[in-house]
Amino acid sequence: NQASVVANQLIPINTALALVMMRSEVVTPVGIPAEDIPRLVSMQVNRAVPLGTTLMPDMVKGYA
């Protein structure tokens, strides 16, 4: 199964993503693939992302 990017902490709106904020986990539904974690670093989220939430492409500015 494909691992997705999951929030490792609460990520406030407009926060630039850092490695420590993300982990990979096999979840349903599938979100952003875990292999894209390096690409996500320094991109901003466009909403608050609670701990344990799967990151979806529409949550990250400039990802989709």
Score class of each variant (00 low, 15 high):
Arg23Glu: 12
Gly52Ser: 06
Ala7Glu: 03
Pro12Met: 13
Leu51Gln: 15
Ala3Ile: 09
Ser24Gln: 13
Gly31Trp: 03
Leu55Cys: 03
Ala64Ser: 13
Val30Lys: 06
Met21Pro: 03
Tyr63Asp: 03
Ile11Ala: 02
Thr15Lys: 05
Leu55Phe: 09
Met43Ser: 08
Asn46Ile: 11
Leu10Gly: 11
Gly62Phe: 06
Asn8Val: 08
Ala18Met: 12
Ser24Leu: 06
Thr54Ile: 11
Thr53Leu: 14
Leu40His: 01
Thr28Gly: 05
Met22Ser: 02
Leu51Met: 15
Leu51His: 12
Ala64Leu: 13
Thr54Gly: 01
Met56Glu: 07
Ile32Met: 02
Val30Gly: 07
Val49Arg: 01
Ala7Tyr: 02
Pro50Arg: 06
Ile11Gln: 01
Val5Ile: 10
Ile11Val: 06
Ile37Lys: 05
Asn8Trp: 04
Pro12Lys: 08
Lys61Glu: 11
Met22Glu: 03
Gln2Tyr: 11
Glu35Leu: 10
Val20Pro: 14
Lys61Thr: 13
Lys61Gly: 09
Pro38Ala: 10
Arg23Asp: 06
Leu40Asp: 00
Val60Asn: 02
Leu40Arg: 00
Val6Glu: 01
Gln9Ser: 12
Met43Gly: 03
Met22Gln: 02
Ser42Met: 08
Leu40Tyr: 01
Val45Cys: 05
Ala48Met: 08
Pro57Ile: 04
Arg39Pro: 01
Gln2Trp: 13
Glu25Pro: 00
Val49Pro: 01
Val45Tyr: 00
Leu19His: 14
Thr15Pro: 02
Pro50Gln: 11
Met22Val: 07
Met22His: 00
Met59Thr: 05
Val5Glu: 00
Ile37Pro: 00
Arg39Leu: 14
Ala16His: 15
Val5Asp: 02
Val41Met: 05
Val5Asn: 02
Thr28Arg: 04
Arg39Tyr: 06
Thr28Val: 12
Arg23Cys: 09
Val30Trp: 06
Leu19Ala: 11
Thr54Leu: 04
Gln2Ser: 14
Asp58Asn: 10
Pro29Glu: 07
Leu17Asn: 02
Asn46Glu: 07
Gln2Arg: 04
Val41Gln: 05
Ala48Cys: 06
Leu10Met: 10
Pro33Met: 08
Pro38Thr: 10
Ala64Gly: 10
Pro57Val: 08
Asn1Cys: 06
Val5Gln: 01
Val49Gly: 01
Glu25Phe: 05
Gln2Leu: 15
Ile32Gln: 00
Pro57Ser: 08
Pro50Asp: 09
Ile37Glu: 01
Asp58His: 09
Asn8Leu: 06
Asn46Pro: 02
Met22Trp: 00
Tyr63Gln: 03
Ala18Asn: 11
Pro50Leu: 11
Met56Ala: 08
Ala3Thr: 13
Leu17Met: 05
Arg39Phe: 11
Val26Ala: 09
Ala3Asn: 09
Leu55Lys: 01
Leu51Phe: 15
Met22Phe: 06
Val20Thr: 15
Ile13Gln: 14
Arg39Trp: 12
Ala34Cys: 07
Met59His: 10
Gly62Val: 04
Ala16Ser: 10
Asn46Ala: 12
Gln44Lys: 13
Met21Ser: 04
Met59Glu: 02
Arg39Asp: 05
Ser4Thr: 04
Val6Lys: 03
Pro38Cys: 05
Thr54Tyr: 00
Met56Asp: 04
Ile13Cys: 15
Ala7Ile: 04
Leu17Tyr: 00
Val45Trp: 00
Ala64Asn: 13
Ile37Phe: 03
Asn1Lys: 06
Glu35Pro: 07
Thr54Arg: 03
Leu17Ile: 12
Lys61Asp: 11
Arg23Val: 08
Tyr63Lys: 04
Val60Phe: 04
Arg47Val: 13
Ala64Phe: 07
Ala34Pro: 07
Pro50Phe: 08
Pro50Asn: 10
Val30Asp: 12
Pro29Thr: 05
Thr28Pro: 02
Ala16Asn: 15
Ser4Asp: 01
Gln9Glu: 11
Ala64Ile: 13
Val41Ile: 08
Lys61Asn: 15
Lys61Arg: 14
Glu35Thr: 09
Val30Ala: 12
Pro12Val: 06
Ala16Val: 14
Val20Cys: 13
Pro33Trp: 09
Thr53Lys: 08
Ile13Thr: 11
Pro33Asn: 11
Asp58Gly: 14
Thr15Trp: 06
Met21Tyr: 08
Gly31Leu: 02
Ser42Pro: 02
Ile37Met: 15
Pro50Ala: 14
Asn46Ser: 12
Leu51Thr: 13
Met21Arg: 00
Pro33Phe: 11
Val6Ile: 13
Pro12Ile: 05
Pro38His: 08
Glu35Gln: 12
Thr15Phe: 06
Leu19Lys: 10
Gly31Ile: 01
Lys61His: 14
Met21Lys: 03
Thr53Asn: 14
Glu25Thr: 08
Ala3Val: 09
Asn14Ser: 08
Asn46Met: 10
Ala18Trp: 04
Ile11Ser: 00
Ile11Arg: 01
Gly62Asn: 11
Gln44Thr: 15
Pro50Trp: 06
Glu35Lys: 07
Leu17Gln: 00
Leu51Val: 15
Leu40Lys: 01
Pro33Glu: 04
Val60Asp: 03
Tyr63Asn: 04
Thr54Lys: 04
Leu10Cys: 15
Ala7Thr: 14
Ile13Trp: 13
Ile37Trp: 03
Val41Thr: 05
Pro38Phe: 10
Thr28Leu: 08
Pro38Trp: 07
Val60Leu: 11
Met22Thr: 00
Ala3Phe: 08
Thr15Tyr: 12
Leu10Trp: 13
Ser42His: 14
Ala18Ile: 10
Val49His: 01
Leu10Val: 12
Gly52Val: 00
Met43Pro: 01
Thr53Ala: 12
Pro38Asn: 11
Arg47Glu: 15
Ala7Pro: 00
Ala7Val: 08
Asp58Thr: 09
Val26Asn: 10
Gln9Met: 14
Val26Pro: 08
Met43Trp: 06
Leu40Gln: 00
Ala64Lys: 14
Ile13Val: 13
Val49Ala: 04
Met43Leu: 13
Ser24Val: 11
Lys61Tyr: 09
Tyr63Cys: 05
Arg47His: 10
Glu25Ile: 05
Pro57Asp: 05
Pro38Tyr: 12
Leu19Gln: 07
Glu25Gln: 07
Thr28Glu: 15
Tyr63His: 04
Ile13Phe: 10
Arg39Lys: 14
Met56Asn: 05
Gln2Phe: 14
Val20Phe: 12
Gly62Arg: 08
Val20Leu: 13
Arg23Phe: 05
Pro38Gln: 11
Gln9Val: 11
Ala48Ser: 14
Leu17Gly: 03
Ala7Leu: 03
Val5His: 02
Glu35Ala: 09
Ala18Pro: 00
Leu51Gly: 12
Leu40Ile: 08
Pro57Tyr: 10
Val30Tyr: 13
Asn46Cys: 07
Leu17Cys: 03
Met43Arg: 12
Val45Gln: 01
Pro29Ala: 04
Val45Ile: 06
Ala64Met: 10
Met22Pro: 01
Ile32Tyr: 01
Ser42Asn: 12
Leu55Glu: 00
Ile32Arg: 00
Asn14His: 14
Gly62Thr: 06
